[in-house]
């Protein structure tokens, strides 16, 4: 339970940028409409590469704080593995449902607005 809490805390620091990347993939699929399946391969590599870039920068910027997680028994690789796997699953779910159902764009707009408002609230609360 403690491990889950710590991973969630670390992930919350990189969630927004990863979520925006995921949404940009979905918006691209909406833009391509019925031809969306053709760009899934490109979007896959786009997502994978940016996952690595985001994690690299989060590690570099929070290098000192990684000792905190290390002293709690959570290694850098474990953090990378779990957060990347979860984020990729989220991306996969969005892409899958977009391909299968074709979720209307306003739902994603609402989702984006909600997430941005929550982050703004948390930022000012901090």
């Amino acid at each position: 339970m403690r491990t889950l809490k710590l991973i969630t805390r670390f992930y919350s620091g990189i969630f927004l940028v990863n979520f925006l990347i995921t949404l940009s993939c979905v918006y691209s699929m909406i833009h391509f409409g019925t031809d969306a399946l053709e760009i899934v391969g490109v979007l896959f590599w786009f997502k994978v590469c940016l996952l690595a870039v985001v994690f690299y920068f989060s590690i570099t910027n929070n290098k000192q704080e990684l000792y905190y997680y290390q002293n709690l028994g959570i290694s850098k690789l474990f953090l990378a593995g779990t957060t990347s796997a979860f984020d990729f699953m989220l991306w996969l779910a969005f892409v899958y449902f977009q391909l299968r159902i074709g979720i209307p764009v306003y739902i994603f707009n609402l989702l984006l607005l909600s997430v941005l408002l929550i982050f703004l609230y948390l930022y000012y609360k901090k």
Binding site: R2, K5, L6, R9, N62, Q64, E65, Y67, Y68, Q70, N71, L72, G73, S75, K126
Partner: peptide, 27 residues
């Protein structure tokens, strides 16, 4: 990988600055 064997205090501050003192103690 074995904090039960060895813990490390680096020469710089390592506790994430956004955490509350109570959260650190809980962790």
């Amino acid at each position: 990988k074995h904090p039960e064997l060895l813990l490390y205090l680096p020469q710089f501050n390592f506790i994430p600055k956004s955490l509350k003192v109570k959260q650190v103690m809980d962790d």
